[in-house]
Design a binder for these strands. Structure first.
Lengths: 137, 137
DNA sequence: TATGAAAGACTAACTAA
DNA sequence: TTAGTTAGTCTTTCATA
């Protein structure tokens, strides 16, 4: 991970469809260099995947979920990855155990997701926070 | 947004480099249809951007930040987007105002980021939670 | 790093609902 | 009029030297 790698990643983060040729001329290296670097970054797991950032609904939110002491948070979390409108499921340290990042049509749908979370027998508490604005680092 | 759109998005979310021809044959439509749909989804803002999910460090964390009553959270948040290792800056509702999603080399670096956040004069409180595991929805 | 070959994406004209 | 298809062309990526 040197400076060139970081610059390539910056460009890809903003637009992963930028052609290697364009990245190359921007950074003043050859197309092959960019391609080799990207391949290596992928092999090394620095690039986890090429993906799309979407906004299918009008409301993004974090639903924080706390599960009972004696249950495996992973199995609860795994189940939630299958729910519609759930973009990410994070296992986190701290007060609550799981954070769902969701992208829903409206607040009613968010509410339905909260209800669904609360209906899981392992879930003892939820806290929800709307994501009012998102900016790229 | 019909079922075909959703299926295309699912595929792209998992691998945005899947060729249109491959998506097309998986979903039993023509390559042109996939391309037209993707273009439209992009124009409509459903696809915000093509990007890479990265893990440059070994520790991901949420740093929650609370700012003083009388300041504009946006200006504080905007400043933080420029910091290294910050992937996202969210303005959120609820107890704290801003969530930084960071990807740092180690916990020492996370700690340095927390310190940096606390050094901002508008910041009155921080809470940090490590992201122990991340799964795609 | 440079080049030719292969793969993929794009243009535009056409068809069907 | 809108969505889908197809054929031909152009661009990007890939493999090799």
């Amino acid at each position: 991970m040197d400076d060139l790698d970081r610059k390539i990643l910056d460009i890809l983060r903003r637009d992963a469809r930028t052609p290697y040729t364009e990245i190359a001329s921007t950074l003043d290296v050859s197309e092959g260099t960019v391609r080799n670097r990207v391949d290596r970054l992928r092999d090394d797991g620095v690039i986890e995947r090429f993906t799309v950032a979407t906004r299918t609904g009008n409301v993004k939110a974090m639903i924080e979920v706390s599960v009972a002491m004696d249950v495996d948070t992973h199995s609860v979390g795994d189940r939630m990855t299958d729910w519609d409108e759930v973009d990410f499921v994070w296992q986190v340290s701290g007060e609550l155990d799981i954070v769902l990042v969701v992208d829903a049509a409206d607040t009613t749908r968010v509410n339905e997701l909260i209800t669904k979370a609360r209906e899981q027998e392992e879930v003892v508490e939820t806290k929800t926070r709307l994501i009012l604005d998102e900016k790229l680092g």
